[in-house]
Amino acid sequence: MAAAPGKPASAQAATPSVMTRRGFLSTLGVAWTAFAAACAAGAVATTRFMFPNVLFEPPQQFKAGLPADFQTGTVDQRYKESFGVFIVRDEQGIYVLRAVCTHLGCTPNWLEAENKFKCPCHGSGFYRSGINYEGPAPRPLERYRIVLADDGQILIDKTKIFAQEKGEWSSPDSFLKV
């Protein structure tokens, strides 16, 4: 049974007497080390297998057009479905809110008439700025990095998140002055 030499051997390995034998340090030692290493490599490789190299999701960075495409005083929802962001333009400039409720991760709606973001799951409410003021949400909506690309278009980078409670909203990349 060449395929299963490990089974009786594993029972042997459990005995302390084996450890003292010289054979363990020579042939059997090498054998077990190599076998264990191969198994470990297999386990790591299997883990690696679970992390895909290519994603079929929308990219984490995208160009959202020129600043002039966004009207002052509006919450723009054109990239809400495709990229999960609200683009808000006020008097000073533009910021990008992550469309994920800070309570349990649902997608809030923008209610134009009530001038607020409202989460449909548990009723958290946020001001236009993203600050929470009602419902269970513990903290404001997060903002994404927003900069101007070389060609003058807005570049939104979802890998960088700015949280208000950490004082990150003062970072220059969280807000695009126009």
Binding site: P5, A9, L28, A34, G42, A45
Partner: peptide, 22 residues
């Protein structure tokens, strides 16, 4: 000892193959 040797050789073979594959 012969079985041990066989075990060692095949384990090393397995390890090398694994490395080659990766």
């Amino acid at each position: 000892p012969a079985l041990n040797f066989l075990f060692a050789a095949s384990s090393i073979g397995l390890l090398l193959t694994m490395g080659w594959m990766v």
